[in-house]
Design a protein around this nucleic acid. Structure first.
Lengths: 235, 235
DNA sequence: TAGTGGTCTAGACCACCTC
DNA sequence: AGGTGGTCTAGACCACTAG
């Protein structure tokens, strides 16, 4: 670990997991912790702030830091960005692809707006069904400007996480995403395989940004809610 | 303003809004800003960290802070906790209630688990349709343990935000919520008024917590997605 | 009143970016 | 090589909590 405060945060988190500090119980004071770890109080405060952001602990001025009850529920939220691949793997399932299609076309008005495109730009569309343990769970459509990956993208693309592919082959990292959450309506065109059993579906429209806030790609995901659950932490 | 760093964060945010720093442009360095505001560099760093958390700015080590493009899109997300009342008012609509019912019953298994109840606890159920400009937009069911508000709650309750009512009459503040996003299925019982026009609906299941992480109440909300849009910021 | 967390300072050293 | 942000320190004072 490079950062002392992140290291200390991890240690304290582990100790909470182990039950060394019980739910609702008070942690040692900042000054005690800074003695224990041999660091300054400010460093300890950074560790504790990180624990607060993780939802493990809460602080009360003049009193102390207390282990948050239900902190465990806060771990599997979609507040942190993750690809569908990661989502499926986190559920201990094996991820796969079906009916993968890649083609090039002109962007529509919404895509131009959300991806900051010029009128002469063209986009790649990656259209596929993602499976978990061979069962279709997500119908996913990614819209990726050619200006970002170049004309030879279809040869370079390989099944699995698009985020990972962009990072490994192009050095492009997704730092943030803005997701719109939608109900599925009759207008939404869905592949037969996903529609067949008439499962409950959620629609996510996501714009993925790099660290500078420039849009990278757009995705439409229709997720089977009977197979995957979604939580949001609101603070 | 009490805190210097929050004050400076607000000033810088306003200056970005005013176009004093353009999108993608670099901000003055930390050391320049600390001179300008007459504070230490650490204080400036806190202001900048807050601006990053707000999605207005991003930092690059060794280079500087840059105004984030699309920062404006990040403002209306559900990452921050807000009541339905606030949600409707933010859309410049007038909030109202319809078919309000309050009754007392035993909690079911899910409620016992999510609200940390004992087997002998009872809960109040507040069942109502929330309207925006007189049109029904949300069917909402709140589950509130009697142990939190006492037996006379039905007399004390008044239409509008339950969060506000709890804060004003009981001094109970919601600090955080964990929300599950669900698709609506045939099993969900919905009032005729909301179902009538067959609008696209989203289901939110939320547990509301106080600052100590103790659950306060549970809510089931069926939101008309043709009237209200929902965004989540993922980092 | 004593102890706690919240804010702020002035300085130091490092890793990284840019030229 | 010089400038930038990232980390860390040792100390100070304040606001709040609790006995």
């Amino acid at each position: 670990m490079v950062n002392r405060y992140a290291e200390i945060c991890a240690i304290l988190g582990k100790e909470i997991d182990q039950g060394l500090f019980l739910e609702g119980e008070r942690l040692p004071t900042e000054r005690e912790l800074s003695d224990r770890f041999g660091v300054s109080r400010e460093t300890i405060r950074r560790s504790l702030k990180q624990l607060i952001e993780l939802g493990r602990v809460h602080g009360i001025q003049g009193s102390g830091y207390y282990v948050r009850r239900h902190g465990r529920h806060m771990k599997s939220t979609i507040n942190r960005f993750s690809s569908i691949t990661e989502l499926i793997r986190n559920a201990n399932l094996t991820e796969g692809d079906l009916e993968v299609q890649i083609f090039k076309r002109k962007p529509d008005a919404q895509e131009i707006q959300l991806l900051d495109l010029g009128s002469q730009d063209v986009v790649f569309v990656i259209d596929r069904i993602r499976t978990a343990d061979r069962e279709p769970v997500v119908y996913s459509k990614n819209i990726l400007p050619q200006s970002i990956v170049g004309v030879d993208f279809p040869e370079k693309f390989e099944p699995g996480s698009l985020t990972k592919c962009l990072s490994q082959k192009y050095g492009i990292t997704v730092a943030e995403a803005l997701m719109e959450l939608c109900a599925v309506t009759d207008e939404d065109m869905l592949p037969y395989r996903l529609k067949a059993s008439n499962p409950p579906l959620l629609k996510f429209i996501q714009v993925h940004y790099d660290a500078k806030g420039a849009p990278i790609f757009l995705s439409y995901d229709f997720m089977r809610n009977d197979k995957i659950r979604f939580f949001v932490r609101r603070t």
